[in-house]
Simulated scan of single mutants.
Amino acid sequence: MSRPIAFMFPGVGDHYAGMGHGLYQTEPVFRSFVDQCTALLSGHLGEDLREVFHPAGTARGGPSLAELLGRRDGTDNGRRPAAVDRTLFAQPLVFTIEYALARQLMSWGITPSAMVGYSLGEYVAACLAGVMSLEDTVALVARRAELIETVPPGAMLVVLLGEDELAERLDDELWLAAVNGPMLCVAAGTPDAVRRLEARLTEDGVANLRTPTRHAFHSAMMAPLSEPLEQLLHTVELHPPTTPFLSNVTGTWITDEEATGPAYWARHLRQTVRLHAGLGELWRLPSVIAVEVGAGTMLGSLAATHPGRPGGDPPVFATLPGASDTQHDLAALLTVAEKLRRLGVPVTTPHADERDDHGLLAGR
């Protein structure tokens, strides 16, 4: 019997110009879903987002998001931000790449038994689980991103403290945005409040890192969007999930009532992301294999180091290279597919000798 697969979908933050460009060039399935999503999105945003995300001359191994923004410390250093950093474009594009990547894996027989998405990533999970149609999800993601850009600027700070310790340092302009680990949380709030917190933490010797965002996601600064989001959700047909996925809001498996309730998705944007609790639930699944479906290794790293991880070495795989990784997209994906095949997953990729004309799998 095949081991269960859990798809993990990142949110924004590790995305970069050229993400998935190699797969778009070589994989018809991936390309067809990217084209489908971007065609739907262009009707909402008035842009062909393939041009925004894959500008001329951008390919794998190109500049990272931080380099495009001239960043070294989480600020834009006075330079004009790149289009991929705008919420209006970044969120729909991250959804598109992750959705198309999941469909590519599924076309090879790598099918999830469970899923978890981080922030925006939960929309990918919900769409794949049949809670929302692709057309409705794309419209929701686009409108949600558009609404976010109407709220005042905010900031977010990753902090190496536990939830209770960080909560003691928050004021009425700061909120607990995410609990990613026992000693890894995210604070969100007004730019001034985050700067003050950053300075106090640095003075106290507490490691912290500003995130490359201009909004305070998962905080009370998103509260004004709850009503318009809920109204929008009332126009969408919602269904119970056909594949279980973990809720950011509760940190456990989403219920049918939550998944089909517009109020849940309105809360989802402003409430704390309970990833650490969710990963604990994920590791309760017997012999589960976790596959990060998106750029980088953030979720995979958190899953691999989670204290609830079973004994031994449960496999955690990442499917798409990070911004600073020069590995070809297809090489990364085929390497994961081969490792899954060796673990007994019935993967049906094309033969390596038909796909390795350029030595993509050398040394795998």
Score class of each variant (00 low, 15 high):
Y16K: 15
G18A: 09
G20D: 01
G20Y: 00
G20Q: 03
H21T: 05
H21E: 10
G22H: 10
L23N: 12
L23I: 04
Q25E: 15
P28R: 01
P28I: 07
R31A: 14
R31N: 00
S32P: 12
S32N: 12
Q36C: 12
Q36E: 12
C37H: 05
C37G: 02
C37R: 02
T38S: 08
A39C: 15
A39N: 11
A39F: 06
A39S: 05
L41S: 03
G43I: 06
G43K: 13
G43S: 10
G46Y: 06
G46C: 08
G46N: 07
E47K: 09
L49Y: 04
R50V: 00
E51H: 15
V52D: 01
V52Q: 08
V52K: 04
F53Y: 15
F53M: 12
H54D: 02
A56K: 05
G57T: 15
G57P: 11
G57F: 02
T58Y: 05
A59C: 03
A59S: 08
R60M: 02
R60N: 04
G61V: 14
G61F: 01
G62M: 03
S64W: 06
S64I: 05
S64L: 10
S64V: 11
L68M: 11
L68Y: 02
L69P: 02
G70T: 03
R71A: 13
R71Y: 11
R71E: 08
R72I: 11
R72W: 01
D73H: 07
G74M: 03
D76K: 05
N77D: 13
G78T: 09
G78Q: 13
R79F: 09
R79Q: 14
R79L: 13
R79H: 09
P81G: 15
A83I: 07
A83E: 05
V84I: 06
V84M: 13
R86N: 14
R86I: 11
T87R: 14
L88K: 14
L88I: 12
F89V: 01
A90E: 10
P92R: 00
T96P: 14
E98R: 00
A100W: 01
A102C: 00
Q104R: 07
M106N: 10
S107V: 15
W108K: 13
G109A: 09
I110P: 04
I110S: 01
T111E: 06
T111A: 09
P112N: 09
P112T: 04
S113W: 05
A114C: 06
A114H: 15
M115Q: 03
V116S: 11
Y118H: 15
Y118M: 13
S119V: 07
G121L: 13
G121D: 10
V124Q: 10
V124L: 14
A125N: 09
A126L: 05
A126Q: 02
A126C: 06
C127F: 06
C127I: 02
L128V: 08
L128M: 14
L128I: 12
L128A: 07
L128G: 04
A129N: 07
A129P: 04
A129E: 00
M132F: 12
M132S: 02
D136I: 10
T137I: 08
L140Q: 03
L140T: 13
V141S: 00
R143A: 00
R144G: 02
A145S: 13
E149V: 07
T150D: 08
V151Y: 01
P152R: 05
P153D: 12
P153M: 14
A155D: 08
M156V: 13
